[in-house]
Simulated scan of single mutants.
Amino acid sequence: MLNRIGRGCAALALLLAIGLSGPAAWAAGPTVLAAASLRESMNSAADAWAAKGHDRPVISFAGSSALARQIEAGAPADIFVSADEKWMDYLQTRKLIRTSTRRSFLANDIVLIAPKSSALKLTIKPGFPLARTLGNRRLAMADTNAVPAGRYGKEALQKLGVWNSVSGKVASAENVRVALAFVSRGETPLGIVYATDAKADPGVRVVGTFPRSSHTPISYPVALTAKAANREAEAFRKFLISSQGKAVFARFGFRTN
């Protein structure tokens, strides 16, 4: 009973988050749930779609884990865009997406960032002195147990042999944009985010890029949900994975597949 109530509350929270209790409830555009790291690029893609004469999609951004669980709880959505394959797999095994529409279309990198004013220098390599550099301060990361950016970051630190020394110093954030804000505001001296996040925030600078060999390839899949009902949902999905749509994301620093 409590589980059902919890899921109902989660669905209601998403309804409020995407504004379906107000005028957006009547918007004709598809409802898109997208990873937080896509905020600027997905909004730009939606604007480009609307410029073609279509109704602009209604978009909600959060950690992929939170969005996948909202869909599982029954929240209304036409399209899901995840920052990793695992959360799309999670929905697929539960028959909550239309498998035939699933496509991986974007790639990214993870980087170590510092506030723009910081003069700190570090070379990312096996055994690099991250813990010593942090001292008694913290490392901002998205939730390393659930959020893709956090899981990629943890995997990279493990591969480089430094995770055990910093695991107790992590400032955990609900999504990658919150981790980015921790660093941008100077609340933490270092953080791990996507390269595209760092590009989007003038308040941070990139200290170094993690080798792609140190973590699972960062892949963004898109799919229609099983309950997708909007008449333009499939057309917008196809636009996102088209050469024109990918060009929008490339302008924000994403690599395209």
Rank of each mutant, 00 (worst) to 15 (best):
A34Q: 05
K169Q: 15
A77H: 10
A228P: 08
A66S: 12
F249S: 09
S41T: 03
N3W: 00
A45M: 13
A195F: 06
Q244T: 15
N43C: 12
A50Q: 13
V32I: 13
V178C: 03
I241N: 09
I59L: 13
L20V: 05
D143N: 15
P211I: 02
S64C: 09
A250C: 06
H215E: 04
I110T: 04
A179E: 08
T188V: 11
A140I: 07
W87A: 00
Q92T: 09
L12K: 03
T93L: 10
L122P: 10
L67C: 06
P217D: 04
E155H: 06
V204L: 10
G208M: 01
V170M: 10
F210N: 04
P211L: 03
R237E: 05
S219K: 14
K199F: 00
D55Y: 12
R137G: 07
V178N: 11
P115T: 00
L38I: 06
H54N: 15
C9L: 13
G8F: 09
R103K: 15
A10Y: 06
G150V: 08
F249N: 10
S44D: 15
V176S: 15
E234T: 02
R98Y: 03
V170C: 08
A195K: 08
L134S: 07
G150R: 02
W163D: 09
A173F: 02
I113Q: 02
L2N: 12
T31Q: 10
S64H: 08
N108V: 06
A45V: 12
S44A: 15
Y152G: 02
V81L: 11
T188W: 03
N136Y: 12
A35T: 05
N136K: 14
R255W: 00
R103Y: 01
A142I: 05
P217T: 07
N3H: 08
D197V: 00
S242N: 05
D89V: 01
V193E: 11
S243E: 14
R103L: 01
S242L: 08
D109M: 01
L180N: 12
A149L: 09
A146G: 01
S118C: 12
T99A: 15
L12A: 13
T123I: 09
I79H: 07
V170Q: 06
A45T: 09
L224R: 05
